[in-house]
Amino acid sequence: MAHVIPYIAAIQEAIREEMERDERVLYFGQNMATSPDDPFLKQFGPARVRVTPISETAEIGMATGAAMAGFRPVVELYMAEFLLVAADQVVNEGSRFHFMSKGAVTVPMVLVAGYGFTYGWAGQHTGSIYGMFMGVPGLRVAMPSTPADAKGLMTTAIRDDNPVLFFHHYLLALTEGEVPDGEYAVPFGVADVKRSGSDVTVVATGNTVHSALAAAETLAERGVSAEVIDPRTIAPLDVDTILGSVARTGHLVVVDQATRHASAAAVIAAEVAQKGFSSLQAPISLVTALDSSIAYAEPVESFVLPDEHKIVAAVGETLGLAPLPG
């Protein structure tokens, strides 16, 4: 059975259900549990649900210490950029300990952060910065595009014995969708084919999955069959599913809201260029944000971001079609 809830509620549902199943799961964050009516606080109490000071470095470091001591903290960071305030703790501390301790220490910790709030939030709160973490050994990076994946990936994130960065897209927060009732886990490193197709493979993440699906619909009306793949986690990255698709379609367009040179798309393109070169009938095309900060003014904001039309145009170019009207 399933129920329909918003994406952001699906994340909360997974955290709540895991806290019910496992009393080692803790939930920390700034500005949370500030009211006695907070549902998490009421259900789990102040020992497990705690507000923290605006001290990202200490919050994440404290969670790392608690994780090494046997707990499973979930830290709510709100904005992806706040991870950068605590970059040493995110990149260079907890993520290293399993390896450096020959596996004697594990750090089961989830850092939850929203990204891509491209709705007038301007230069410092709109970044799509997940790409810079996908190459950090020891870190897992999940980025759901649907409410069901949001729930399933969060369940897996909490159960994983590694530090996990869980990036949710702010523009998807209120998007509703069917979510399975009860225990639901989506495995890491398993891409989901969101739409099957035979002419071109379109790989997209997060909010751009929806742009890619809209583009596929437009392309279908013009007789082009696009396959849309959502990796769902970029570390680990399911390269095999993408290679398998490209082997059938011979064409690859990778969509990413990140800036081109720090995108997951660039890594995906490199993997396919090396391992799937013989399948490719045309150069790989990347549809990413420009290598620019995100502008405040709406027309400029839209200009730098990937969208459905840019995906349609890229597919047309890859397939060598005559330019398609708007």
């Binding site: 803790l26 020992a47 497990r48 470095t57 200490a58 919050e59 994440i60 470091g61 404290m62 969670a63 790392t64 210490g65 608690a66 994780a67 090494m68 001591a69 046997g70 707990f71 903290p73 040493d88 703790q89 260079n92 501390e93």
Partner: peptide, 18 residues
């Protein structure tokens, strides 16, 4: 990394309390 271990101890001590 200088100072990087300080919050770990806070978290481990919080775990003691829990």
């Amino acid at each position: 990394v200088v100072g990087g271990n300080l919050p770990f101890a806070v978290g481990a001590a919080f775990a003691s309390r829990l």
